[in-house]
């Protein structure tokens, strides 16, 4: 199971070399998320329409290794946008991936952009 975690390496926006065209923006619920499949990765993409922002992170919750975060509720803690895992409500920053309410390890976040009504998720060379 640990290898599952290691499949989600950090991507830095400046180094993105590949934008994957995932799905039309309209397929993502407002203020909620949906899961994108890219090769053997599962990426949770969130349409934070309240803020007019988009976020993406691994779908895998590191607490009990569950492919689930896309079904989580989003919100904020102070200024920090976050997602809460449906299983045990561990919350993770959508910006840094850090676990905000405990000491579960951090999750990987991915860059997202919207172009011509489509959602794109950024990956680095390792996964293009």
């Amino acid at each position: 199971m640990i290898d599952l975690l290691e499949k989600y390496p950090k991507v830095v926006e400046d180094e993105v070399v590949f934008w994957y065209k995932a799905a039309p923006a309209s397929a993502f619920p407002e203020n909620g998320g949906a899961c994108v499949k890219y090769k053997d990765l599962q990426i949770a993409v969130f349409n934070f329409s309240r803020k007019g922002e988009w976020y993406a992170c691994q779908n895998l919750c590191p607490h009990r290794m569950q492919m689930i975060l896309s079904r989580g509720m989003i919100g904020s803690s102070g200024e920090e946008p976050k997602v809460a895992c449906p299983f045990h409500k561990k919350t993770f920053s959508l910006k840094t991936g850090e676990n905000l309410n405990g000491d579960t390890c951090a999750i990987t976040t991915y860059p997202v952009k919207i172009e011509d009504g489509y959602v794109y998720v950024g990956f680095d060379s390792g996964y293009s």
Binding site: F48, R50, M73, G75, K89
Partner: peptide, 10 residues
């Protein structure tokens, strides 16, 4: 205020 969370939403 803010953007809500997993406590106030449900």
């Amino acid at each position: 205020e803010g953007d809500g969370c997993e406590i106030c939403k449900p």
